[in-house]
């Protein structure tokens, strides 16, 4: 399993969670944070790589109402959409460039 939950938030409802991503780093953490931080209902979102020698990334989400898990899923979907769009646009531009 690549994702797990950090204990400690069981009693505070579904709106706040810290997820632990195995084998991930700033690459995913910062990009995902950048999207999730901009959502309407999000109170706080941040990430940390606790130790440089451990391939782990902690990702914290706190919302007002929406469950944190839902926000995380939405963030990943949006990031995926950004990537798809970037690939499409880039390949189109490369094709254009090669025509000239």
């Amino acid at each position: 399993m690549k994702i797990s939950e950090l204990p400690g938030d069981e009693d505070s409802g579904a709106t706040c969670r810290t997820y632990v991503f195995q084998n991930e780093s700033h690459t995913l953490g910062n990009a995902l944070k950048c999207i999730i931080n901009r959502y309407e209902d999000v109170q706080f979102c941040g990430y940390t790589v606790p130790h440089p020698a451990e391939a782990k990334m902690h990702f914290r989400i706190q919302t007002y109402e929406t469950p944190a898990l839902e926000v995380l899923k939405r963030g990943l979907k949006d990031l995926q959409k950004v990537c798809d769009h970037t690939i499409d646009l880039f390949e189109k531009e490369v094709k254009e460039f090669n025509k000239i």
Binding site: I3, E24, A31, L69, C83, T86, I87
Partner: peptide, 19 residues
């Protein structure tokens, strides 16, 4: 560059499946 973006996309995809 395209490969790099694809890797990020696939990462998101596999994490979503996990979730």
């Amino acid at each position: 560059f395209v490969e790099a973006v694809k890797i990020l996309r696939d990462k998101c995809k596999s994490l979503l499946d996990d979730l």
